[in-house]
Design a protein around this nucleic acid. Structure first.
Lengths: 96, 96
DNA sequence: TTGACAGGCAAGCGACCACTTGCCTATCAT
DNA sequence: ATGATAGGCAAGTGGTCGCTTGCCTGTCAA
């Protein structure tokens, strides 16, 4: 749960989520070039790789390796916990 | 928009939001003691004060001064932008 | 009025984080 | 086989952030 917010804290990671929302199942290089092209964010390939690691451990994306390609798929279900935590009328939830 | 996620990144600030959800309109000292009592988080008064500053500039809470007391009120409406950004079926939103 | 109480201002410090650099492994085409 | 491509590992660095410490301002009760 804490990983989720930590993952969303970095602007670059939110941009990656946006890029994946535009087109799901991209490789690292595709994400990299798409960030520089459409978002004007010039980051190193390794930087993005580290961001993808954080996003994956937060459950925000899943990966699938195929040959030398590794595809990244967006998963927004963890974001629904935010809604359940503060936006729903329920109360008294604890964080671990 | 970026302030929102930055504000939610710190565990202490999320705990403050939870404390305010339990009882809205608390003062700094009330929040401070409530964190130590119910959440086992022993933070300095100044630390919490700085957190409240961040939360307020993110629009997550509003304050009202009365005499020497300053009451803090929770506001979860900024959180709805998260839903609109990634959970709704809409697409092509930009971040500033 | 003076002491206690609620809060604010500002400097400083340690730790973490985003990012880079350099090198290495694995897969595919020619 | 060998070069190119896609990706991974690990160390290092600068900057920011969370938190503390110390002191000051404003408000109320005695």
């Amino acid at each position: 749960m804490a990983d989720l917010f930590e993952a969303l804290a970095a602007p670059a990671r939110r941009a990656i989520l946006d890029v994946l929302r535009e087109r799901d199942g991209q490789t690292l290089f595709e994400i990299c070039s798409r960030l520089t092209m459409t978002r004007n964010m010039t980051l190193t390939r390794q930087a993005i790789s580290q961001h993808l690691e954080v996003l994956e451990s937060a459950g925000l994306l899943s990966t699938k390796r195929e040959g030398r390609y590794k595809y990244h798929y967006l998963d927004t279900t963890p974001l629904e916990t935010i809604v359940e935590r503060w936006l729903s009328p329920e109360r008294k939830k604890k964080e671990k």
